[in-house]
C-alpha cells in the first residue's frame, strides 16, 4: 500500500461523510484494531533496518492526520447539532458542585451592622461575657436597688461574688473609656444574658451590638445623623426614622429609635402592632455620671451611645417569627441564609 495514495483518498472520503455512523465506519476502517494503520504498522518488522525509520515516520504522520481529521469532523457534527449528541446531554441535570456551608444568620447580621459602622470610622472592640457588677451596673449609673434594674435582671455566678454574665454589651463602654484615649468611635458586638424564660420572643441568651462616640463637640444631632445613615444602609433608603424620648440610666437625654414598618411601610400591620413603627434601638447622650466613673470631663467632652438587639434586627430583616429558631440550628433553617 502506498501511503501517499491513502493520504489522498482520505481527504476525499472524509468530505463525503455526513453522519456519525459513517464517521465511525471511517474510523474503524483506518484506525480500528485491524484497520489500515494497524496493518501498515504490522509490516514494519518485515522491512530492512534502513527503510524502517522513514516508513515509521510516514505511518505516524498518517495516523496524526487521521486523528486530526476525525476530530475536526466530529466537532463539526456536534456543532451541526446532530440529534444523537444533543440527546445525550441534559442541562436539566443538577450541576455538579461541592456544597457550600452557611454562616449563621446572626453572624451575617452582626457582620453587616459592624461593617456599616466600620465604614463610618468606628473600631470594633469586644469584651468578656463574664463581667463585674461594677462594669455592668454601677459604672453605667444603674443603682443597685432601683426599679430601673428590673429591665436588667441578671445571672450571677455562684462562687465569685459580684461577678455576673453581662446583661448588655454596655460594660464595654466602661472598659473602653477607661483603657483608651478620646476621641473614641467604637462598635461592640457580643453575646449577652438575661434570665428570661424562653418563648417565641424571649431568650436567656441573645446578641447585641453597642456603639458609642466620645469627643469634643459630639451632639444629639450627630447621634441622629449616624443612626439615620445606619438605618438606611441596613433597611433601605426609603426607611423613615423617629426618635422618641425614653429613659436609660446611662444616657441623658435618652431616645428610643423607631423605623417605619418594613412590612407595611408605615400603614399598620400585625408585625408593627398596627403602629406603623418598629422599635429597633435605644440611644442617647452618654450620662455625665458615666463619664465621671471613667474619669472623662463631661464639661469638655460629650458623647453618644446606642445599642440594638441582633436577633430583633435579623427577625425583622428576614421575617423570622420565633427567636428559638436561631439556637435550634436546624440545617433546613441555616441553609436559607
Amino acid at each position: 500500500m502506498d501511503i501517499n495514495i491513502i493520504l489522498a483518498e482520505i481527504d476525499l472520503e472524509i468530505n463525503n461523510i455526513n453522519s456519525p455512523e459513517n464517521l465511525e465506519q471511517f474510523r474503524l476502517k483506518y484506525l480500528g484494531r485491524k484497520g489500515i494503520v494497524a496493518q501498515l504498522t504490522a509490516t514494519i518488522p518485515t522491512l530492512s533496518q534502513g527503510e524502517r525509520a522513514s516508513f515509521g515516520q510516514q505511518v505516524n504522520a498518517l495516523k496524526n492526520k487521521l486523528s486530526l481529521l476525525l476530530e475536526e469532523k466530529q466537532r463539526g457534527n456536534s456543532a451541526n447539532n446532530s440529534p444523537r449528541e444533543s440527546a445525550s446531554f441534559d442541562i436539566g441535570m443538577p450541576g455538579i458542585v461541592q456544597e457550600l456551608g452557611h454562616l449563621h444568620p446572626l453572624t451575617q447580621v452582626t457582620e453587616e451592622i459592624c461593617t456599616i459602622f466600620n465604614r463610618m470610622g468606628f473600631s470594633i472592640v469586644e469584651g468578656p461575657e463574664i463581667e463585674s457588677e461594677y462594669n455592668n451596673f454601677t459604672g453605667l449609673n444603674i443603682p443597685l436597688e432601683h426599679p430601673s434594674r428590673e429591665a436588667f435582671d441578671t445571672f450571677y455566678l455562684k462562687d465569685y461574688s459580684k461577678m455576673l454574665l453581662r446583661s448588655h454589651t454596655s460594660p464595654v463602654q466602661v472598659r473602653a473609656m477607661k483603657d483608651r484615649k478620646v476621641p473614641l468611635a467604637i462598635i461592640v458586638p457580643g453575646r449577652v444574658y438575661r434570665p428570661d424564660a424562653v418563648d417565641a420572643s424571649h431568650s436567656f441568651m441573645f446578641h447585641q451590638v453597642e456603639g458609642f462616640m466620645v469627643d469634643k463637640g459630639i451632639r444629639f444631632s450627630d447621634l441622629k445623623g449616624v443612626l439615620e445613615e445606619f438605618s438606611k444602609a441596613i433597611f433601605g433608603k426609603d426607611i423613615k426614622m423617629r426618635f422618641r424620648p425614653h429613659f436609660f440610666p446611662f444616657t441623658e437625654p435618652s431616645a428610643e429609635v423607631d423605623i417605619s414598618c418594613i412590612i407595611c411601610k408605615g400603614i399598620g400591620c400585625s408585625v408593627c402592632g398596627r403602629k406603623g413603627w418598629l422599635e429597633i434601638l435605644g440611644s442617647g447622650m452618654i450620662h455625665p455620671n458615666v463619664f465621671n466613673h471613667v474619669g472623662i470631663n463631661s464639661k469638655e467632652y460629650t458623647g453618644f451611645a446606642f445599642g440594638m438587639g441582633v436577633e430583633r434586627i435579623a427577625m425583622l430583616k428576614y421575617g423570622i417569627n420565633d427567636i428559638r429558631l436561631f439556637f435550634e440550628n436546624d440545617l433546613r433553617f441555616l441553609r436559607q441564609f
Binding site: G101, H102, H104, F155, Y193
Partner: peptide
C-alpha cells in the same frame, strides 16, 4: 461545606 451553629453557653 460546614454550617455555622450558635448554641447556648449555659
Amino acid at each position: 461545606g460546614l454550617n455555622e451553629a450558635i448554641t447556648y453557653s449555659l
